[in-house]
Design a protein around this nucleic acid. Structure first.
Lengths: 151, 151
DNA sequence: GGTAAATCCTAGTAAAATACTAGGAGATTA
DNA sequence: TAATCTCCTAGTATTTTACTAGGATTTACC
C-alpha cells in the first residue's frame, strides 16, 4: 500500500510547475534542478500528466509545460491516478456496477476493498492543486532539503 | 497503492478461521483446502497474525489456530497492518509528533499523505472481523470460485 | 514408545515491478 | 545553423513479491 516515486515525485513536480508556469512554460530542466529529480525520469512523469490532460506542452527552445486547466480544477486524485494508475487497493474493488471480479456477489472481502477505495477517492478528490500551491507559497519552500526528504 | 497477496489472502484466511474455530483449533491444512491457498505460504501469514497477537496457536496433532481475542475486537486495520506493515501511503506521513521526515515542516505534500493515511486508517479500523464473518455466513460462501477470484 | 499430525523457523529463488538510464528523432526559437 | 526543448522507445540494475523447500519441534492417540 505504498505510493511509488511516480506519484511522489510527480505531485511535487506539478506543484512546482503550477508555481512557475504562470507567465511562461516551465522546462523539465528547471523543475528537475529545483526539485533535484532526474531529468530523464521526470520527462516520463510529465508525459503521463500530459496524456491525462493535466498539462500541455510547448515544444522547441523556450518551451516546456503549462497547466492544461486551472489549478483549482485539478484534484490530487487526478494527479495521482494519472501517475499511479488506479488507486484501488485491490483490482476487483471497482465501483462500476458490473466491474471487476465475477465472483463478487459471494465475496466478503470485496466490501472492505470497496470501503477503502471510497475513502481514498473521497480524500484525494477533495484536495485541489491550488490549495497545495498556496500552502507552498506560504511556506516559501521552493526547494526543500532533498538529503532529508525523498518524497 | 495495491494490497499484496499477504493482506488479501491473510484476511480471507482469518475470516475462515473465525468461522471454524469456535470449538476446536483450525489447522492450516483445512484453511488452505477451503480457501485454495498454498499451505506453506499460509503458514507464514498465520505466523504474522500470531506475532501481532491476533491468533493463538495450538501445537501438535489436532492443533491449529484460534482467535486470540473476540471477533468483535479485531479490526480489519489490525489484520492488514499485521500482514502488510504500515498502511501509510508514504513513509514520512507518520502521525507521531516527531515521526518521519526531518524536512516535514517545509513539506507540502506531507499534508496529502497524512490525509490519505487518516482516511484509510479510519476506514479499516471501524470495520470489525465479526461483521465480515456474519456477512460471510449470510452469503453461505464457504468456498468461492478461486478460478474467478484471486482476492 | 512410535507414528502421524500439527506448528515453527530459516533460506532460497523465480518472476514481476520499480526506478531509473540511454539514445536519438523531431520541433522551435534566436 | 546552433541551441534548447519535447517526444518516444528500449534497456537494465535493483528491489519486492510470492512463493517453495527442508527440516526441527511439539503433541495426541494407539
Amino acid at each position: 500500500m505504498k505510493l511509488s516515486t511516480k506519484g511522489r515525485y510527480g505531485l511535487r513536480a506539478l506543484i512546482d510547475l503550477a508555481q512557475y508556469s504562470e507567465e511562461t512554460p516551465v522546462s523539465i530542466t528547471s523543475i528537475s534542478a529545483r526539485q533535484e529529480l532526474s531529468e530523464r525520469y521526470l520527462e516520463q512523469l510529465m508525459s503521463m500528466l500530459k496524456k491525462a490532460g493535466l498539462v500541455k506542452s510547448v515544444r522547441g527552445a523556450g518551451g516546456g509545460y503549462v497547466l492544461a486547466k486551472d489549478m483549482a480544477e485539478i484534484s490530487i486524485g487526478d494527479v495521482l491516478r494519472a501517475l499511479e494508475g488506479s488507486l484501488e487497493p485491490v483490482e476487483c474493488a471497482g465501483l462500476e456496477p458490473d466491474g471487476g471480479c465475477k465472483a463478487s456477489d459471494n465475496c466478503v472481502t470485496k466490501y472492505v476493498w470497496q470501503r477503502i477505495n471510497e475513502s481514498i477517492s473521497q480524500t484525494v478528490d477533495e484536495i485541489m492543486l491550488d490549495q497545495l500551491v498556496e500552502e507552498s507559497r506560504k511556506k516559501s519552500c521552493v526547494g526543500m532539503d532533498r538529503a532529508l526528504c525523498k518524497n
